[in-house]
Nucleic acid binder design. Structure first.
Length: 416
DNA sequence: TCTGGGGTCCTAGGACCC
DNA sequence: TCTGGGGTCCTAGGACCC
């Protein structure tokens, strides 16, 4: 029996397509979406790519190009993108047996049946139900499905990789183009004379493992058409929950950092409760500007919690102590964040060491907070904050309305 | 002046033990 | 007393992805 083929469905210019869904007048016109703080470009329409605007370029550097080409600009609106993302995957799951969500806008799936027919069917189903254009690549491994998807984007939106043709082309494909090979590994491969896919395929596997570790070996296998990155049938629980943000301006004040860290704890802990998980470890990070004299200052500290928890009150206390350890006076901080990791499912009876009465009281308060904040679609009830001026909060100057996630901003359709 | 946020996985080095 | 190697566990940080 031949091993099953793997498909990869990827939404085209996802954030841009989401914005266009509610602004069909922008189809065919140049559109881009910015990161938080309106910092840099995170999504580009084909027209913007053709103009030559790169991914990740700072907004302030391209303001003249935007004006010259009349590019429409959006601040990012993640609640909208997440909502549409959920719809895409729900359609996929109704059409396919095995679907593994890989990111907000792409998923691997198992091909069962004639590859072209399956690819065409799922593409059509998603586009019809959600309205977001997608591309599908099909190949024997995940890494090659990525390659196939790239080709699909440059043609009719569907591409089934022919492994014979792939091997012939391998000499002309630089390793740098392959999924998982970033700038650093490209350099290391080059230093050992490996530049193209063909170079790696011809190298001795033992040598590849020795020089490039398990990652190098996997890459070699995958590119040879031997699947070593398997499809995950069931949706694995998340391994960590993170919340972090850059400030519009740097700050040297400990109180501002404390306010930011407490915000991140509230959000990460609420996220944890929504997933019904408990965290065994808490990490706090504070960083100065990435581009300046203080680049080496700042730091990260991880603490193992006495008892795994999702309790905002407990986490706030621990986080505050970590922050005070990390903080250095006089350093201009630009970013703060927290990570909750070592996640385990909630309800495992780990609470026996706690004062049950206090825990119960926290739980019922937090349940009310979660419900209210969820209903309002934003944080209206805060715990452990002095409700300060939020000097560190993000800017979003050109945000589209919350079309699908907040009732007050729902799109209006005028019947004629 | 202005350069994202949320993830995963891997590795290196220290502490400790046998 | 001195010597060594190898495990494991932990944490910080790197690399990469979207």
């Amino acid at each position: 029996m031949t091993p099953p083929l793997i498909g990869l469905l990827d939404c085209n210019n996802f954030f841009v397509s989401c914005e266009r869904l509610f602004r069909p007048d922008l189809i065919g016109k140049p559109v881009l979406v910015l990161s938080s703080n309106d910092g840099c470009v995170v999504a580009r329409s084909q027209e913007v790519k053709d103009i030559g605007v790169s991914m990740g370029v700072p907004y302030f550097q391209i303001k003249d190009i935007i004006q010259k080409h009349d590019i429409t600009v959006f601040s990012s609106h993640f609640a909208l993108y997440r909502d549409l993302s959920r719809r895409v995957f729900s359609v996929m799951r109704s059409e396919l047996e095995v679907v593994e969500q890989y990111s907000i806008d792409e998923a691997f799936f198992r091909i069962e049946g004639e590859p072209l027919e399956v690819a065409f069917r799922v593409k059509l189903a998603v586009e019809k139900a959600v309205g977001i254009p997608v591309s599908v690549g099909v190949a024997p491994t995940k890494t090659l499905a990525k390659v196939a998807n790239d080709r699909a984007k440059k043609s009719a939106g569907i591409h089934v990789l022919d492994t014979v043709i792939w091997r012939e082309r391998a000499k002309k494909v630089p390793l740098a183009q392959i999924w998982g090979v970033g700038g650093k590994s490209e350099l290391r491969y080059k230093q050992h004379g490996l530049q193209s896919v063909a170079d790696l395929l011809q190298a001795d596997p033992a040598r590849v493992t020795k020089l490039f570790g398990i990652g190098g070996w996997r890459l070699q296998q995958e590119l040879a058409g031997i699947s070593v990155l398997s499809l995950q049938q069931k949706h694995d629980p998340q391994r960590s929950v993170m919340s972090s943000r850059s400030f519009p301006k740097t700050t040297t004040e400990r109180s501002v950092l404390a306010d930011a860290v407490s915000y991140h704890i509230r959000h990460a802990a609420a996220d944890l409760r929504a997933q019904a998980q408990l965290a065994a470890r808490l990490t706090v990070t504070i960083r100065p500007n990435r581009h300046g004299d203080f680049i080496l200052r700042g730091g990260t500290k991880e603490v193992v919690l006495a008892v795994p928890t999702d309790d905002t009150f407990v986490l706030l206390e621990v986080a505050k102590n970590i922050l005070f350890e990390l903080y250095e006076a006089g350093v201009p901080y630009k970013k703060a964040g927290v990570v909750l990791s070592g996640l385990i499912p909630a309800g495992g009876g780990e609470q026996s060491l706690f004062d049950q009465a206090e825990l119960g009281r926290h739980n019922s308060i937090l349940a009310v907070v979660d419900r209210l904040n969820k209903r309002e679609g934003k944080e209206v009830l805060l715990i452990g904050s002095r409700l300060s001026t939020h000097k560190w909060q993000a800017l979003a100057e050109v945000c589209s309305p919350a079309y699908t996630t907040r009732w007050r901003e729902i799109v209006t359709v005028n019947a004629k």
